[in-house]
Simulated assay, not measured.
Amino acid sequence: MSRVWNFSAGPAAMPQEVLDRAQREMLEWNGSGSSVMEQSHRGKRFVEMAAQTEADLRTLMGISADYAVLFLQGGATQLFAQIPMNLAAEGDSADYIDTGHWSSKAISEASPYLHVNVAASAKADDYRRIPTRDNWQLDPGAAYVHYTPNETIHGVEFHEVPDVGTVPLVADMSSSILSEPLDVSRFGLIYAGAQKNIGPSGLVVMIIRRDLLERAGRPMAKIFRFAEQAANDSMLNTPNTWGWYLAGLTFQWLHALGGLSVMAERNRAKAELLYSTIDGSSGYYRNPIDVPARSRMNVPFTLHDSALDATFLKEAETAGLLALKGHKAVGGMRASLYNAVPLEAVQVLTAFMRDFAKQHG
């Protein structure tokens, strides 16, 4: 078997070391005589593993006791509706920053539950930049401010945490969590689908300030209420045990590498190599995003002639470079450079891009 270089936007590449360990432990986990997927989530082994996974994440991100850490079923899209249901009461409003496909979708899904104030938007600029903070029209009485630090599809990223005063800041970090050190204390709530930088799909990691759990929110079933999940250690119902286990292995892998400062340097090197290849191609390849807003995690690019797109993708796949087709909303190409994508993969990709330009220029 020969593994390819995987640039998928999600579900995305996972660390080889994590997959190797999961393979070794598939039939015999932790001396139990069965796999982790066959264990009761109430059993001693699983409960200990879950507690250690949370502890490892707290250490990696510097999460204080003021925050609860939840491991929830589903995906971040489900949270687009659950967040206003939990954090806002009838008649409340919330501020949203519109920087791309996913923040726009969050706005749409929140709208049935509260008044959405789009405090800033880059839609008029085709989501090629981040709206300058000075121009945001924030409401000091908002229930919260929601933003998407990294837009997976459009390839824009906030490189600083925005100051929103005392209003709780809520962030969809699905595609940037664990990619660099983060001051968690700046946030009221952080949530992330696992399938980009944490593990397999079907799991969401949430970090929520405990005082926000006390908000009454809207009438809803217990399964949707964050406070109920926190009170039951994310086991109000049977959790995604496989995803939780793999998240734990990923956190251990990050610790072994040296933590998030080391990962930040790795991610910086990968992004710089790809962007320098695009910018140095004399227009053969182009990235449409304003340079200060370029994403480290997701790099969209186009060829000078879109008629070559199919040839590029076919030859790339033959070369062992997988999932480079851009999202249908923007077209072109996209390379996702999440934590598990090694520098060697980007070196192979950029060498291929230079060779392709020579052969088809």
Rank of each mutant, 00 (worst) to 15 (best):
P112H: 00
H101L: 03
A106G: 11
H115F: 08
D95M: 04
P112N: 01
S108R: 11
D92L: 08
K105M: 09
A106N: 04
L87S: 04
Y113C: 03
P112D: 01
S108T: 14
A81K: 01
A88K: 08
G91R: 05
N117S: 04
D92R: 12
W102A: 12
S104H: 11
V116C: 06
Q82G: 00
A110T: 03
G100V: 02
W102Y: 15
M85T: 07
W102P: 00
P84C: 09
A89D: 15
E109N: 05
A110R: 01
L114Q: 09
G91V: 06
W102N: 12
S111K: 14
S104A: 14
S111N: 08
G91I: 01
I83H: 06
D95Q: 10
E109Q: 02
A110D: 07
I83R: 06
L114Y: 10
E90M: 07
P112E: 02
I97L: 12
M85W: 06
A110Y: 05
S104C: 07
T99D: 10
D98W: 05
T99N: 13
E109S: 09
N117R: 15
G91W: 03
G100W: 02
G91A: 05
F80E: 14
H115E: 01
M85N: 08
A89E: 14
I107N: 09
L114I: 07
V118G: 02
Y96D: 00
L87K: 06
H115N: 10
S93L: 12
D92K: 11
V116D: 11
S111L: 06
F80R: 04
A106E: 03
E90P: 00
A110L: 03
S104T: 12
A81I: 05
A88C: 12
E90I: 01
N117E: 01
A81S: 15
G91K: 08
E90Q: 13
A110N: 01
M85R: 15
